[in-house]
Simulated scan of single mutants.
Amino acid sequence: MVVLALYRISCGLSMILCLVPLNWHWRNGNIPAIALILWLVPYNLCTWVNSFIWPDDASLLAGWEGGIYCDIQVKILMAGYTGIITSILAIARNLANILSDDNPIVRTKAVKRRENMKDLVICLGIPIYMMAVHYVVQPRRYYLYTISGCGATVDKSWPSIIIIFIWPPITALVASYYAALVIYRLHKYRNRFTSILSSSTYANKSRFMRLFLLAVILLIVFLPASVYTFFLNISDEFLPYSWADIHGEGWLSIEKIPTGNVIKFDRWPPVGVGFLVFLLFGLGKDAVALYRDWINTIGIGRFLPDRLMARENLHARAFSIPGSTQDSTGSKGKAVDLTTTLSSNDDGDYPIWPASH
């Protein structure tokens, strides 16, 4: 029960902490990062809720079978895991394109709109496709596990490779290619890196490198896991595909699988991803500024020290008159665009292992 309590606390905290980076990425229109969080939070939420419905083997065997609730959830879980990987792919692709010779210096609205559409297709296309065609290779409604709850079922026949098994490793491999391309181009353009970023939507080195670090760390985890899982799933002998056998009388059956009160291990990595997202994007200057806005909005800010709320800087800016500053020689200097300066210095169950029939 200690492990269960730890999972509930860490999973719940992981979801809450993702809200700050989500807010920040939403303001900046970073579709791949938004998609990553929006795939991640529902995935964790499903298992978190399940841990209260089926907390032990006894409640699993004697309790609710999860009708309709699990029918919907298995589709979310199936798409969510692959959605995390496709979002990583979109992040790595965008970073590689920023350092590309073909990257336009001036990004018109049409160019931005086209790039946003590409991001949406990459982040949502394959996961939605998997949800839509899963029924073709779904031999029964779902499995029920202790604590972890609903689990998707996948038939052990050749169409399952094309429909389900192949996509996580393919997207992870493509994402790895783009990550390697970023490393190559970082070396190639190391002397022009800052000037290149000045014309991109990723305003500075910090923002760029945090996104790149996020993609690399997640690939280190998800690439070997997805490749290993793929070969594990195809290692057994496949059965001939039969629509009639898959969707026969037994399709409505729900198999309950006691786990000895153990959480399925594939439910832990998404929890860790939530903490990683927060560590990289929830502790920078941009996030701290957001916290201050929230504190001021609810009226607590006036009770906190000026230094904590950075009010001394705001007072200094209030008395800075454009065009009136002077250098040490007494000559007038140019007014500084504080907004630009600040923004440029921001730190700025289809689980991994789908069940076979």
Rank of each mutant, 00 (worst) to 15 (best):
G323Q: 03
V288D: 00
S331H: 14
T329W: 11
A316W: 03
D306C: 06
T339H: 09
A289I: 01
P322F: 01
A289E: 14
D346Q: 13
S343L: 13
T325M: 10
R317K: 13
V288M: 11
S328F: 14
S320D: 15
R307P: 00
S320G: 01
D327S: 10
I352Q: 04
P354W: 01
G323N: 02
S356G: 03
T341I: 12
W353L: 13
W353M: 09
V288S: 02
D349K: 06
A316Y: 04
D347L: 13
I298L: 02
W353S: 09
T340H: 12
S356E: 05
H315C: 07
G330E: 05
I352C: 06
R307N: 09
R307F: 11
D346P: 10
A355F: 08
Q326T: 12
A316K: 11
L290V: 04
V288G: 00
I298D: 01
S343V: 06
H357N: 10
P354H: 04
L342D: 10
I300A: 11
S331D: 13
A318F: 08
D349W: 05
S344H: 13
A289P: 00
D306N: 15
S331E: 15
R317P: 01
G301D: 00
M309Y: 02
L342M: 10
I321F: 10
K334V: 06
T341H: 10
H357Q: 06
Q326P: 04
D327H: 11
